[in-house]
Structures are given as C-alpha cells and as structure tokens.
Amino acid sequence: MRAEARSGTLLSAPYVLFLLAFAAYPVAFALALVLMHWDLVTTPSFAGLDNVKLLATDTRFWQAVGNTFVFLGLHLPLQIVTALALAVALNRPMMFRAFWRAAFFLPVVISGAVVAILWNALYATDVGLINALLVKAGIAPVPWLTDPRVAMAAIAVMVTWKNVGFYVIIYLAGLQYIPRSCQEAIELDGATAWQRFRHLTLPLLLPQTILVLTLSTINGFQLFIEPYVMTGGGPLRRTFSVVLYMYTNAFSYQKMGYAATIGVALAMIIGTVVAIQRKVVGTAEAL
C-alpha cells in the first residue's frame, strides 16, 4: 500500500535523522578522532598513529585499566554472591516480602552522585558512620578512602551496595521458573538445603548469572562519579578509572583525539572481557 509506505517513511524520518546525528556520526567520528590532534580551538590536524602509540605506552592509562580489573576482581564475586543470597532468601512465601524487595532496591533509584557523597560521609575517617560503629565495637578507625590498600575495596563495596537490588530482581525472576516439582523431587531424594542449591538452583540460574556478570562488568568499566567525588582518583592514583582519565583528557587537557582513542580502546577492552567471560562461564556449564 503506497499511502502506508509514505506514512511509515514520514513517521520514522525524525528518528532516522536522530540516529544519523547522535549515533552513526559519533561512532564514525570517534574512529576519525583516533587519527587526529584537536584541542577544540585550533583546526584539527592529522596525527597518524600518534594517539595509538601514546596509548600503548601510557602508564597512566594502563594503571587505570589495572585499577578497573582490581575493582572487578573485588566487585563481581561480591555482587553475585550478595544478589544470589538475598534473592534465594526472598524466594518463598513470607511476611513483608514486598518491603524487603523495595528496601534492597532503594539505592538503585538514587543518583550515583548522591550515593558517592553519602558514602564519602559514611567512610569519613573522623566523623563517618562506619568508623563510629568500629570505634564503638572497640576497633581502631580505618582511613577507608585515603589508605591506598583499601580505597578501591571501599569503592567496590559501595558500588555493590548501590546495585545489588537490581540484580536481586534479575535472580528472583529466574527463580520463578524453577518448577516446584523439581524442588520437591530432589527433596524427596534426601538432598540437604545446600545440595539443592548447589545442584539444582545454581545450575538453573546460569543464564541470570551470565547476565549479572555481563551487566556488572560493563557497569564496572563505567566507573566515574565514585572516584571523581570520593577520591579524585587517589590515593596514589589507585582508584583512577578509565572513564575518569578519558574525562580528564577531554575536559582538562582539551586532547579530544587522545580522549576518543581512550574511548575506543575501552570499548574494545569491554567487548573482549565480556566475550571471554561468556566463553569461560559457558564452559563451566558443560562440567
């Protein structure tokens, strides 16, 4: 029908234009910027592979990548274990079920900027809530955000706290699809609660675990506002994240070519890490 084709083209045209301007063009221009020097003021100049060479040997960039892996090493297991534990605990008829769920989800709806400022206060060495509790329990206060050995761990705990409610919902959705009859059959066979979890629940939740792993990995590589507000990337650059480094290059040093190069490299690193994770977890399933 010709009238229908005309309406369709007309109604989708604004979106097509939007995609060209704010999706296709930025992706193409990101790749072009890799080959450019540009400070936004003077005309861009061709840089050849300068940016790529600089990136390859830039210890500050690679330290930021390393920091992210430290973060993920702490955050991913913590995130999966806490989300799984809370979801399994909630997956039964119980009192106040909606309330528990809503409480765990509360930090998800709060801006990352607020969470960073709040936890900055919670972690404060002298007046923070956490150290006040420690002192009350007779333990010496810990300089959470100024000790290079614990700062990244402190941020990993905070991010886990912020996002766990989101992953609890994902696991709860998965748990709904485990048939009761399976539960009952394995129970009749005399399996303990742990055996039931280990050999029935955990394998059946593998798709959810892969999803949680992928989303929290991608989220982890986006770490920005937390170090920006809480540590400025310190102490000793131990919490400097890749996005914070990209932001600094663009905003403070006006090095658009190099900042875009960091963005492209980061996208490639994320793609590689997620692909490897999926492959490894997929093999684990076969065992």
Binding site: A21, F22, A23, Y25, P26, V27, F29, A30, L33, W38, L40, I218, F221, Q222, V242, V243, M246, A250, M256, A259, A260, G263, V264, L266, A267, I270
Partner: peptide, 13 residues
C-alpha cells in the same frame, strides 16, 4: 555501542 565510545565525539558535536 558502549556510551564511552561516543561520549567524546558527542561532546565535540
């Protein structure tokens, strides 16, 4: 497409 990839070109735009 990860947001980090398009952030800088969008900013220059």
């Amino acid at each position: 497409v990860p947001g980090q990839l398009t952030l800088i070109p969008l900013y220059t735009l």
